[in-house]
């Protein structure tokens, strides 16, 4: 499986993402600078990592979403490629329009940095097939702007299409319907605030993120 990680000025989870992808696939991902305008050939998965791209200026992810490489990432997703956005990466994907809704300042106005309990709501995707639907897992969160907001029609669509991949078990940031992660209509783009790439090593923060990377690697080898 061939993977890439997009790197913006201010990204800070790009190396953790690279470690998780290398562990799962046996191959180091290509690290792609945001000013590049071409992606490597034959990619199976692009990860947009967490961090504070462009200092969170204007709105989180808004300026990164206009980077030259993001046009290519959007085109890749529109052709059916798999894209994973975590934390700031989720915010960037929302700002490109690949995922609906918006991520606003946490309702508590506080930066939240701790392990949270999540429920895997939807196991039918290349990202979540390694979990059982309804399974509870623990992943770390670290964000200030993770309150998921969408209009009623969008929320209903997400619920009806079973595109809510993860929900917080307890209130974390004020997200509507406790949404922690959502899938695109073709289920090949996942955006989520919690960090699966920080939970892939039993010695550090547990291994509840590992099934995501393992099943991604498995599904793309056989595909």
């Amino acid at each position: 499986m061939k993977t890439a990680v997009i790197v913006f000025p201010g990204s800070n989870c790009d190396r953790d993402m690279a470690v998780a992808l290398r562990e799962a696939t046996g191959q180091a991902p290509a690290m792609i600078w945001h000013k590049d305008s071409r992606l490597p050939e034959g990619l199976d998965l692009i990860a947009v990592p967490g961090g504070f791209s462009f200092g969170d200026y204007l709105r989180c992810g808004a300026i990164a979403a206009q980077s030259p490489i993001m046009r290519e990432v959007v085109a890749f997703a529109e052709k059916g490629g798999h894209v994973l956005g975590v934390c700031n990466g989720f915010q960037v994907l929302i700002e490109t329009g690949l995922l609906p809704g918006v991520l606003m300042r946490n309702a508590t106005l506080k930066f939240v940095c701790r392990d949270v309990q999540l429920r895997v709501d939807e196991a039918q995707s290349a990202f979540t097939r390694g979990y059982a639907a309804g399974q509870e897992i623990v992943l770390p969160v670290a964000h200030h702007d993770g309150c998921y907001v969408a209009d009623d029609a969008t929320l209903k669509q997400l619920e009806d299409d079973q595109r809510i991949a993860f929900r917080y078990r307890d209130a974390v940031n004020g997200s509507m319907n406790d949404i922690a992660g959502i899938l695109s209509t073709n289920r090949r783009v996942l955006g989520m605030m919690p960090h699966p790439e920080r939970a892939v090593d039993a010695k550090v923060l547990g291994t509840d993120g590992l099934p995501m990377f393992r099943t991604l690697a498995d599904s793309m080898v056989t595909a």
Binding site: L58, R59, A62, Q66, E95, V102, M104, D151
Partner: peptide, 9 residues
């Protein structure tokens, strides 16, 4: 429309 505002909110 394209950058300064997020017209969703």
């Amino acid at each position: 429309r394209r950058l300064l505002a997020n017209t969703v909110i």
